[in-house]
Write a protein that binds this DNA or RNA. Structure first.
Length: 440
DNA sequence: TCTGGGGTCCTAGGACCC
DNA sequence: TCTGGGGTCCTAGGACCC
């Protein structure tokens, strides 16, 4: 924790709804709800007019409609949100090089790196007011709530205290007095489960939380969370403002209006999602080793299955096949409401293609053709054929061994076998069409 | 017809290696 | 012939955030 109030947190007010009201004057002053409009949609953002009717983020759209039937229900225009967000982040970066975006509508700014004569409360207050004015300017009318304090934690709490269109600067030294009367739920990281655990031992406020020893807290909430909360209860937070945070995973998921029961359809949907994940990996120059599927059953039970390759991939065919294979192990007979595919274990480099082709070339050539029996030709995802086992694809290779998973569209979870990489029974599978470029 | 989609981080158990 | 530890990787699930 710093001795001066030099961490700023900025939060754009009802951001998605505010962009809609800005761009569509007929919506100004009226309740606007942005979110999923389908049968199983939830509210992403409600304008303050809609909040007066009890509409809240994360509420089902169905309930929002019953609370506020005359609201405008919009599915969202993410390009507009992103574009507006970039203008705000650009403004923040012009003020300090240390800007950490948390989402499209939120960021931390380190004021130690800003051009300020000093970091006294009156100075940062004037600076923050001017920044809020410039946000309105640069966004054509959107307002922001800002908090400034001696840490990320305090700045974030402060920006919440006078919403919307407010500013709160917490004077150094007053943090703990501010926190004590507050409910534990104001602490970021304290959600429903933690709140309930604390409630059961009679803890509701930060002041009560302060009475718990670190050991007790760890016993109650686990090592990481317990230790973390022990310190936050005392306003102890030394986290730096981190401008660059690297991506750890990329995923696509979808909830369907009616439960799925057709396995072939599920495989088709996973295949399409895998393609979207691969495209996004490729655009960002990423590849990853672990493919995970997510399946939410009719009763909301959520399952995940994952599998890790020997080397990273960004190939749509490999990701899709792994996804379908993982699905094969699951009983989905009761119906599925959500399917998803993700890739993690990311490397910021793409495995060098054996033919020196670019990722774009793979888009046109989903089936890779490899020469017969030459060494070092087995890359994950390649189609191969075994004299006895039939057609399969390379699961992994290395140290002279190639592992092949045999599958057909009907039986995705085929057996896995390993062979010496120069086993003559194993050959590259060729598409039925003659390919003059393939050579021998 | 309650309950999105994109993420991050943590835990716990088992495998495996030294 | 009884029973080490530590470290790392992988998997599944859960809590939480916006």
């Amino acid at each position: 924790m710093r001795t001066e109030a030099s961490v700023l947190h900025l939060d754009l007010d009802a951001f998605f709804a505010a962009v809609e009201q800005r761009d569509k004057p007929s919506l100004r002053g009226k309740p606007v709800v942005v979110g999923g409009v389908g049968g199983r949609g939830v509210v992403s953002t409600a304008s303050y007019e809609a909040r007066r009717y009890g509409v809240r983020s994360a509420m089902s759209t169905r309930e929002a409609r019953s609370r506020c039937p005359h609201a405008a229900f919009l599915s969202g225009r993410f390009h507009a949100y992103r574009e507006t967000s970039e203008r705000v982040m650009g403004l923040l970066r012009s003020v300090s090089p240390l800007v950490e975006p948390l989402s499209l509508d939120e960021a931390f700014v380190d004021l130690r790196q800003a051009d300020l004569p000093d970091l006294a409360v009156p100075t940062v207050t004037a600076f923050a007011q001017d920044l809020r004015r410039r946000v309105v300017e640069v966004t054509d009318g959107l307002t922001a709530s800002v908090g400034v304090g001696s840490s990320k934690f305090i700045a974030k709490i402060a920006s919440d205290l006078d919403k919307p269109d407010g500013l709160v600067v917490v004077a150094p030294g007053t943090e703990r007095d501010l926190l004590r009367p507050m409910n534990v739920t104001v602490i970021p990281g304290v959600g429903p489960a933690t709140t309930e655990r604390l409630r059961r031992v009679g803890i509701h406020t930060v002041e009560e939380l302060e009475t718990v020893t670190e050991d007790e807290m760890v016993r109650l909430l686990g090592n990481a969370h317990g230790t973390w909360l022990f310190h936050l209860a005392r306003a102890q937070d030394d986290r730096a403002v981190e401008p660059e945070r690297e991506t750890k995973s990329v995923s696509v998921e979808g909830t369907y209006d009616t439960d799925l029961t057709d396995r072939t359809l599920m495989e088709g949907l996973l295949t399409r999602q895998a393609g979207e994940v691969a495209t996004r990996l490729g655009k960002n120059g990423l590849s990853g080793r672990t493919v995970t599927i997510k399946v939410r059953l009719h009763d909301f039970t959520t399952l995940s299955r994952s599998s890790t390759l020997p080397s990273p991939t960004d190939s749509r065919t490999t990701i899709a096949r792994m996804a379908r294979t993982l699905l094969a192990d699951l009983d989905t007979s009761g119906g599925v409401r959500l399917l998803g595919v993700g890739v993690s274990g990311l490397a910021d480099w793409v495995q060098e293609d054996l033919f020196g082709e670019t990722a774009e070339a793979e888009e046109e050539l989903p089936e890779i053709v490899v020469p017969h029996h030459s060494r070092r030709t087995w890359a994950p995802g390649m189609d191969v054929e075994h004299e006895e086992m039939g057609r399969g694809w390379v699961w992994g290779s290395g140290r002279g061994v190639v592992t092949v998973r045999f599958e057909t569209a009907q039986t995705p979870a085929g057996p896995v076998r390993s062979y010496a990489e120069d086993d003559p029974a194993l050959s590259a599978w060729r598409p039925p069409e003659p390919d003059p470029a393939a050579g021998g």
